[in-house]
Simulated scan of single mutants.
Amino acid sequence: MKVLAAISILFALVGCATPAELRSQKPLLDLKSTKPAKDVAICIADKWEGLGGFGGALTVNMRVTTSGYVVSLPLNGQTGMLVDIDNDGTGSTTKYYKGLVLLEQKLVQAIKDCQ
């Protein structure tokens, strides 16, 4: 329990970024897929929800944009991870950004697996 409290305090002190701040950075992943944006977004959201610890689900946000979808992982009222999935002429593009998220390997792998 003390470890969870320490992690919560660390996130509260350091904080995460807003979506605009994350998008101002170079994406950590920039992928192309033959799948439509909707299929990729649903896949990522479903996989992320299933990666919650201690038998629980992660809270994942997904919303429609003018060009596709955004899937995000909120942490302490800010955006910890953000994925923009946009339709293009032959499928979709996926751009991944992250704020202060530790141990995100499984979350990143889910993004790659959904392409």
Rank of each mutant, 00 (worst) to 15 (best):
L22Y: 06
D39G: 15
L82G: 06
R63M: 13
T94Q: 01
V101F: 03
Y97L: 07
V101M: 04
G53L: 13
L51K: 14
K32M: 06
A45W: 02
V108Y: 02
K26I: 10
Q78F: 04
K106Q: 10
A6K: 10
G99I: 08
G77Q: 05
V40G: 14
C16R: 03
C114G: 12
T18Q: 07
P74E: 07
M1W: 11
D39M: 06
L103W: 07
V64Y: 02
A41M: 10
R23I: 13
D46M: 11
L10P: 09
E21P: 02
T66E: 05
V83P: 00
A17Q: 15
L28A: 13
L4G: 15
R63D: 04
Q78R: 01
V3Q: 13
A6L: 12
K35P: 03
F11M: 10
T94F: 00
A17G: 14
S33I: 03
Y69K: 03
R23L: 13
T79H: 03
L10H: 06
A45M: 05
F54N: 12
F11R: 03
T59A: 08
T79C: 11
M81F: 04
Q109D: 07
A37Y: 00
A17N: 12
T18H: 05
D46R: 09
A57Q: 06
T79Q: 05
K38Q: 14
D39C: 11
L29H: 05
Y97V: 08
L22G: 14
L4P: 07
K95A: 08
A5P: 10
L100F: 15
I85M: 06
L51I: 15
S92P: 00
F11H: 11
K38N: 14
Y69V: 13
D86C: 09
E104Y: 08
Y96L: 10
Q105K: 15
M62A: 10
T34S: 13
P74M: 02
T94D: 06
G53P: 02
I44A: 15
E49A: 12
V40S: 11
N87K: 05
V40T: 12
A57G: 09
I9W: 08
K95I: 09
N76T: 14
Y69Q: 04
G53S: 15
A12P: 07
